[in-house]
Amino acid sequence: MLNTTAKGLLLDTTRCIGCGACALACKERNGLPKTSDAVLEDKLSDKTFSTVNQVGNRYVRRMCMHCATPSCASACPVAALEKTAAGPVIYHESKCMGCRYCMIACPFGIPKYEWEKKAPLVRKCDLCADRLAKGLKTACATACPTGATTFGDREALVAEARARFAANPGRYREHIYGFEEVGGTSVLLISDAKPEELGYPAGLDETPPPHLTWRVLNIIPDIVMTGAVLLGGIYWIRNRRDEVDAAEGHHDASTKGH
């Protein structure tokens, strides 16, 4: 499961003032162009890896959740996506062949594609892996002035979330989204609203989706061995009968179809 020292983010919709600093800091760090007049209008795309939008009457961030057992990394046939021990799910673009199975697999709909380009790549948040390596916070957490995006060790963030629940009775719907969902994510979300009211997928099981495929892939060697013996055996029995017939001179019995 999650490395306890793995870094993550705690998103708190009750602290967000919708200033847009996180989204613009993300664009700055990733060198991404402006995509709308007002930063709060941005949608996730190949040019926007992190958003803060008004949903209902709250401001809500969307970004890669950096799952402990990422569906995208499990789906990728060439291991172009990788969950690192430090927390981020990173993308090795030189490996990618552009099958877009990661986009199908992601339960949060995060990976986006450069549809317009002739050599397109998958684009998404990488939790500022290079900044983390230098001991810095993510760009979004650096820019956030209210603690609506808090950076830290995931374990500490879980404790922080619980401390906020305890210190502000009635302020939160006391559920840490991402603590158990899809087997845990490095990005956690707390709010006074249900996930579906925030535009987040609801009803996610705590079984990591990759386990659903691995259960099947894991028995392939058994299928191959059993199948080879079974088919070989049938072949041997079925053809042996003909050979015996032929040896005994019952040529008429071995002339099926000839």
């Binding site: 046939p77 291991a79 490996k95 552009g98 199975y101 050599a119 397109p120 392939i220």
Partner: peptide
């Protein structure tokens, strides 16, 4: 369909046994 069809051979050398598509 592939975005980068010239990389179609990658699964043969860049393995991910957890991927159905690799298999």
């Amino acid at each position: 369909d592939l975005g980068r069809p010239w990389n179609v051979w990658h699964p043969l050398v860049m393995w991910n046994p957890h991927s159905v598509m690799f298999e």
